[in-house]
Each structure stands twice: as structure tokens, then as C-alpha cells.
Design a binder for these strands. Structure first.
Lengths: 158, 158
DNA sequence: CATTAATAGTTTACACGGCAATAGTTAATA
DNA sequence: TATTAACTATTGCCGTGTAAACTATTAATG
């Protein structure tokens, strides 16, 4: 997506969204030959690092809400990457585990290192460190503010 | 969306996606009382700053592909925010312009400044400057790499 | 122990992103 | 000028995200 900033505001949010989109594009490009989407890779990554997981755990680790995780897992079952089994100790829950096909893709677990290298090309160690630290600060600021300004539930008084 | 990094890789891409999501969440929270989505705000912002625009121009300014822009505009027409008219000089094109309702929301044009202030809280001027510069470098790196590694079109030979 | 509350997962409805294909119009060219 | 190419916008199909409603199960409480 080419974007010429003819008349758009100098917004940090915009810059963050552009940078994040660029990172996603790189990951998607690297995953394309393997027939994986980034969302699917994130689920596989969670399973590679943690073993079999519930939908709730997958949702938490991938940063999605449970409905999204549930559907992504659906497609991965269709694609033969994972299995869905009952949790014998809690019949509400399910256990998602890797198939041999999903396990065989484990070498892709270090994908993020390739993406890092591409994004950070030409930056010195100090700039890298500062970038991570500042991004964490920014994310923390956002979370603090969001927690202090709860969504308008249309019941200010009651 | 709460995310606990129990066992997830230290990925810049991940951190960028989290930061961008946090910025989007803040903007969405601020827009909620006005019944606007962030995508709709971006279209309005383009129109506030540039006057009536074609779909192609809106797509370029908001960073979307034309089909997405076209559908967002559809919803905004339904919502009474903008109008779609024929372009008399080029009958392929359309001209999207603000209704009075859309124009009346112009005070929201500086929304990004509020978001900036929240995200950058506690950061000194130098850290801010470094953040913007580094993010631009990162985005540039990504674009360079993407241009040099064209998508697999499944026709290496022919 | 019976009722109530909380939890796990899914389904539905919707917003929003991509690409591919299409119709209609304009520009380029043989 | 007739044909071909390029361009604008839209539609279709799909993947992904949210919130809300729902089912089934488990935990908490009277």
C-alpha cells in the first residue's frame, strides 16, 4: 500500500499503525510459501512454546478475543495443523494440540527474528534498545489511560 | 484486550502491533461518544483537510485499498456524514463531500493531538524525536525489503 | 443440597481489511 | 478513427477483529 502524506496529520498513532502494518506485511510475505497466515502462525507459536492449550489460553497468548481464536483454530483443524479434543478434567474446555504437520513447522518458530533483522537494519544497538523501551512506555501509557477511562456504558448515574 | 506475555517471543513486530492496537483503542474510546469509528474519522479527516475527494484519493490518504474506502464511505452515507456525487469532468469517478453533519464534527480534527499526548506522557522531547525518527526508519526498511522481495506469484518460470 | 454466579467455548451480527473480477469511461496507439 | 490499454469504482469472496447472546459446565453461596 503506497501512502503519500499529502495532507494527513503528524500523528504518532498513525506512524505506529503504519509501522505495525509494515511488520505484518513482512511476516505475511515470509509465511506465504508455507501457506500460513500470520494469525495461524501466532497460534502455532503459542503451541510450540507451551504445549497443548485451551482456547482461552490461545486467545490470551495471541492477543485475540476467544471468538477470533476459536475460528482461527477451526480453519487450522480443517488445514490439518491442529487437533481439538475434550478436556477430561473440565468438560467445558477443549485442548488444542499440534498434529504432525503442525509440529513439522516448528522451524518457523524463529520467524520473528528474521522480521526483527529486516526492520532493525542499519540501527545501532542503542537505538534498538531505546525503541523497545519507548514502545513499552507508550503501550503502558495507553493501558493506564484506558483503565482510567472506562468505556461509556450509557449509565453515568443510576 | 489484556495480554500477558507469559511465553511469547521478544518480537519487535509484536511490540509494534501491540502499540498500534493501544493507540487505536484510545482513538476508538475518544470517538465512541460521537458514534464514529476510527476508519470513519480517517475519511472525515481527509475531507476536512482537503475538501471533496475521489474514492481513490480517500484510499490513498487513509492508507486503504479502494474497495475498503468505497465500503466505509457507503456506511458513512447511510449515517448521513458524507455525500457521493458524480464527477462531471470524469464520469468514471465520484466526488465525496461532507454533509452538514460531517462538517459539524470538524472539531474532532485535532483528535490525534489528544492521542499523542496520552501516548507520549512522561517522555522527554528527545525521546519523542528519537521515537518518530526510528519508526520512520523501521517503516522505510520494511518498504525497501518488501519492494525487493516481490510476492510469490506462482510463476517463477513460464 | 438447591440455587445462583462464574466460566469456557461457540455462534451470530457486524465492521473492516485484502485480492480478484467486473462494468463503465477515458487515454493511448496502430 | 478503430482498437487496445489504462483507469475508477464497485461487487464478491474470504480472513480476521469485536461485542453480545447463548449453551454447557463448574464453582460459590444460601
Amino acid at each position: 500500500m503506497e501512502i503519500e502524506d499529502v495532507s494527513a496529520p503528524p500523528s504518532l498513532g498513525r506512524q505506529l499503525v503504519l509501522s505495525a502494518a509494515a511488520a505484518k506485511d513482512i511476516a505475511a510475505r515470509l509465511l506465504e510459501p508455507h501457506g500460513l497466515s500470520l494469525a495461524q502462525w501466532a497460534v502455532l507459536s503459542s503451541l510450540w512454546m507451551n504445549g497443548p492449550l485451551s482456547i482461552k489460553a490461545i486467545a490470551r497468548l495471541t492477543g485475540n478475543a476467544p471468538p477470533a481464536a476459536s475460528r482461527i483454530v477451526d480453519r487450522m483443524i480443517t488445514g490439518g495443523l491442529v487437533l481439538r479434543q475434550e478436556d477430561t478434567s473440565d468438560r467445558r474446555a477443549v485442548v488444542i494440540s499440534l498434529t504432525d504437520t503442525g509440529e513439522a513447522m516448528r522451524p518457523l518458530a524463529t520467524l520473528y527474528e528474521e522480521v526483527n533483522a529486516i526492520l532493525l537494519d542499519g540501527l545501532d544497538t542503542e537505538a534498538e534498545r531505546a525503541l523497545f523501551a519507548t514502545l513499552e512506555r507508550v503501550t503502558g501509557n495507553a493501558r493506564t489511560w484506558l483503565a482510567a477511562s472506562p468505556p461509556d456504558r450509557r449509565q453515568t448515574s443510576r
